[in-house]
Amino acid sequence: MDLKLNVQSSPHVRDRISTSAIMLDVIIALIPATVWGILRFGVHAAIVVAVAVISAVLSETLFNIIVKKPNTIGDLSCVVTGLILGLNMPPEVPFFVPAVGSFFAIVIVKMLFGGLGQNFMNPALAGRCFCIISFAGFMNNFTSRMSVDAYTSATPLIILKSGNEVNLFDMLFGYIPGTIGEISAICLLLGAIYLAVKKIIDLRIPILYIVSFVIFIMIFGQGKSTNINYILGEVLGGGLIFGAFFMATDYATSPITPLGKVLYGILLGVLTGIFRLFGKSGESVSYVILISNLLVPLIESFTIPTAFGKEGK
């Protein structure tokens, strides 16, 4: 018997889960929000999303060619980054903006720091903020030629800030102005449920984020603390749902330790509360997540769990 046997260290079996399967699940989870955004805002929005994704894939390919590394687009993470960035674009933005944004997100934020999992900031969010700073006029224009009602240009947060009531039904089902992917809370939550059921995301971060944010605005909300319309409007508006479930849960830029996840969620909620109540910018969620990303190494450093049997020692 002439046997040729493979020899590798244990364990000799592996779970079916893989990096690309996880990324594919995130893409699947974003389909409802993407479809709804395109239905609401039309062909232009569809092209914006496509440009963001294609630019992300091309940027990563190009980078790998230049630095002579194997192409890593097969892990699908660049598709996720491009998709999230595309969904964070206003519907009528010129096509070069998502193209530049994706390039920045992939090359500067992700690949230059070592690629997948090595980035210290969420690439899609960093790309979005880069666009907001660079192309403020385009990025803050939420009018859409598809919807012609009276509130087209005023986002719910602006309405709330001016002391008026918002239509919660419209916010839930996505009849409000906003970026392509953030407008329908229902579509986003459907995706979030999918990710939670498939155990892709840890619900501690998004739930603590939202809960601590609600508690914060109830305490410091200046007389509006019991106004249900105000509180739900704040939760459903301004991309908080999108940010909490799809961006704050980004693996690479959130703490890996269980206690760290808890602290991180609370930090996000409190910072968002501060920015929303006392700040001027409407872009609180993006900046809050980016700032918190930077604190992740610090949070992890003091939340390393106690090893089994080492308690109290």
């Binding site: 893989s18 990096t19 690629g115 997948l116 999992g117 693996y251």
Partner: peptide
């Protein structure tokens, strides 16, 4: 060998 076609990627944390 269940390990022979494993595709190693970066740690995604």
């Amino acid at each position: 060998d269940p390990l022979s076609n494993q595709n190693e990627t970066n740690c995604i944390n």
